[in-house]
Write a protein that binds this DNA or RNA. Structure first.
Length: 425
RNA sequence: GUGAGCGUGGCGAAGUGGUUAACGCACCGGAUUGUGGUUCCGGCAUUCGUGGGUUCGAUUCCCAUCGCUCACCCCA
């Protein structure tokens, strides 16, 4: 049996990688323009970081982490998300003493042990940002609009931003108590998942898919967290919306939106597309930096799933120019021309001209066929005759015309004709 | 973790309890001497994910295993 890739992983092959590269470029451009700089943190961290940062009761920590013990007997974990590592780096490098507002973005693989499914793999790629050092609602608006803009500008259609506020350490516990008081007496009537949610994270009950559970929540008049925000949270949330509107971000309020990670406070949002899974999600996390041993500094961030973006881009036929073509194909008609061909290829490439040649001693006919398939503009033909005469046969694949060019002038001739070609396009 | 479906050459895709496993695309070679995209001719799975069982005989039946897909859980 041949060795196969581990479950939940995949190879990105020529032909598909181009779309990824185009999107990554798009991501970098947006972050750059908004004055964010890239940060790269380790792909594995001490297990403890994620347990503390992501939350002990989250699914990620309870059952999805790739943990391993290294030779020094340390418990390490392949990062399941990006925020914890970035915040750790921020604290460890004492960034708070160097800049008052740290705007960071990242791009890279994450790992979660899950059953693979459409848009969900065990090694997956996220792009995202973290902004540390401000509690301003204007910043929330900036980050939300970025998360939306990156996707919209890539050409994705039917995007929507779902927005909510999950409150703070003041209003959330009060809401939780109120909610449990209403729900617990009827505990038995909820589905088994919701009964578990009551203990772990009652907010989650709002996005249960069972109709019965939803009916019960309505019947019991359980308020959403958005309806129970404290004065400061409510004001903050209102300002966020004001600024989103100013930037023409098409958001809609969703009082039932809950994010999975424990650290979120106040603003929480997702960018989705009709009926499909979440493309990007984020939120504010005002307690996290302190939780991870840093000063009491607020932060906010989001992450997007590359696989999902690419999947949607393919579905929506987002056009990405793929240049799998070359400028010149050097055909070697005779073994005696091999050395001059090597020199010619090197000279062309030195000028930045994309050049390919034959290595397998194929017939001239099949070399031409290959050149055609590679969409070469020109074929430069070298054989016994050409070498003897000190020329190179220069053939246009478009017109079929061919002429001899002195060997010492070919490169210049090619440069000129490619220039003309490009200027006329 | 729970539930369901699937697994034939590089890709797509027929097929049957029984000597040589269709076809299409792709690929390779050729159609007189060194020349492409069309056409024509030829080549391309001792093998039907893997292991075992039933059988005179299995790619077709059964079991296991691996892998894939989908839904749930949850999430990006």
């Amino acid at each position: 049996m041949q060795i196969q890739k581990p479950r939940g992983t995949y190879d990105l092959l020529p032909g598909e990688i181009e779309l990824w590269q185009a999107f990554e470029k798009n991501v970098r451009r947006h972050f750059h323009v908004a004055h964010y700089t890239e940060i790269r943190t380790p792909i594995f961290e001490h297990t403890e970081l994620f347990v503390r940062g992501v939350g002990e009761t989250t699914d990620i920590v309870e059952k999805e982490m790739y943990n391993f013990v290294d030779r020094g007997n340390r418990s390490l974990t392949l990062r399941p998300e990006g925020t914890a590592g970035v915040v750790r780096a921020y604290v460890e490098n004492k960034r708070y003493g160097k800049v008052d507002l740290d705007k960071l973005y990242y791009l890279g693989p994450m790992f979660r042990y899950e059953r693979p499914q459409g848009g969900r793999t065990r090694q997956f790629y996220q792009y995202g940002c973290e902004v540390l050092g401000s509690n301003a609602p204007e910043l929330d608006a900036e980050v939300v609009q970025l998360s939306y803009r990156i996707l919209a500008d890539f050409g994705l259609q039917h995007l929507q931003v779902e927005l909510n506020s999950v409150g703070c350490s003041v209003c959330r516990p009060l809401h939780r108590d109120e909610m449990l008081a209403l729900v617990l007496p009827r505990q038995e009537e909820f589905c088994s998942d919701c009964q578990r949610r009551m203990e772990k994270n009652p907010l989650r009950m709002f996005d249960c898919k069972h109709e019965n559970c939803q009916r019960l929540l309505t019947e019991l008049q359980v308020p959403s967290i958005a309806e129970r925000l404290c004065a400061e949270c409510a004001e903050h949330f209102a300002t966020v919306q004001e600024h989103l509107t100013a930037m023409s971000v098409p958001y809609q309020l969703n009082g039932k939106l809950v994010r999975g990670l424990d650290y979120y406070t106040r603003t929480a949002w997702e960018v989705t597309t009709e009926g499909s899974s979440t493309l990007a999600g984020g939120g504010r996390y005002n307690g996290l930096i302190k939780e991870l041993g840093g000063p009491d500094i607020p932060g906010i961030g989001f992450a997007g799933g590359m696989e999902r973006v690419i999947q949607l881009a393919v579905e929506q036929q987002v056009y990405v120019p793929v240049s799998d073509s070359i400028d010149v194909y050097v055909a070697v008609a005779d073994a005696s021309a091999s050395l001059p061909a090597t020199e010619l290829v090197a000279a062309l490439r030195a000028e930045g001209i994309a050049t390919e040649r034959d290595f397998n001693g194929k017939s001239l006919k099949s070399q031409l066929k290959t050149a055609d398939r590679l969409h070469a503009q020109w074929v430069l033909l070298l054989g016994e005759q050409e070498v003897a005469k000190g020329v190179v046969g220069m053939k246009s694949l478009a017109s079929g015309e061919q002429m001899d060019v002195p060997a010492d002038k070919v490169v210049a001739t090619i440069i000129n004709s490619l220039k003309k070609e490009r200027a006329s396009q």
